[in-house]
């Protein structure tokens, strides 16, 4: 498990933890039923407040990425990776539709739009 916190990011610290753990779970770097450090241990290691780590775990639990068993700790949940991918694909479709809509408003061609997508994609 890897977590790198930026103190200068606009993203709140709890969200940085949520996003990094989600990514590692989806990629399979963290596997099902693997146990996670306690919120207090994590707070100490990262030098952040307990409330922040608690909020991160609460959020991950709400979204189904981890489960917390009272008195036993938190574990990586069994997530349906296919379902996760489906939801993400749907979001991408929606956003692309929006982009196409805007492109048509200013008369951008498909080629021009593809060119733009290429440049942005390569830039990431």
């Amino acid at each position: 498990m890897n977590i790198i916190i930026s103190n200068f990011s606009d993203e709140p610290i709890y969200l940085q933890i949520v996003n990094q753990l989600k990514e590692q779970i989806v990629k399979g770097e963290l596997t099902e039923s693997q146990s996670l450090p306690s919120i207090r241990k994590l707070a100490k290691e990262l030098n952040i407040s307990v409330i922040t780590t608690k909020r991160a775990y609460d959020e991950l639990e709400k979204e189904g990425f981890i489960v917390t068993v009272a008195g036993k700790g938190s574990y990586v949940a069994s997530i349906n990776k296919e379902l996760f991918r489906e939801t993400k694909l749907k979001i991408i479709e929606e956003k692309l539709t929006e982009a196409i809509h805007t492109a048509k408003l200013v008369g951008l061609t498909l080629e021009e739009l593809q060119e733009m997508l290429n440049i942005i994609y390569e830039g990431w």
């Binding site: 709140p12 707070a43 030098n47 952040i48 407040s49 307990v50 409330i51 922040t52």
Partner: peptide, 24 residues
């Protein structure tokens, strides 16, 4: 970094008292 809650006092009055995360 480490505080969970922040309470700010000025001139004998509590100005705010809440979680640091919400505050920031």
């Amino acid at each position: 970094k480490v505080a969970d809650y922040i309470t700010l006092i000025d001139n004998g009055e509590i100005i705010l008292s809440q979680t640091k995360d919400e505050l920031l």
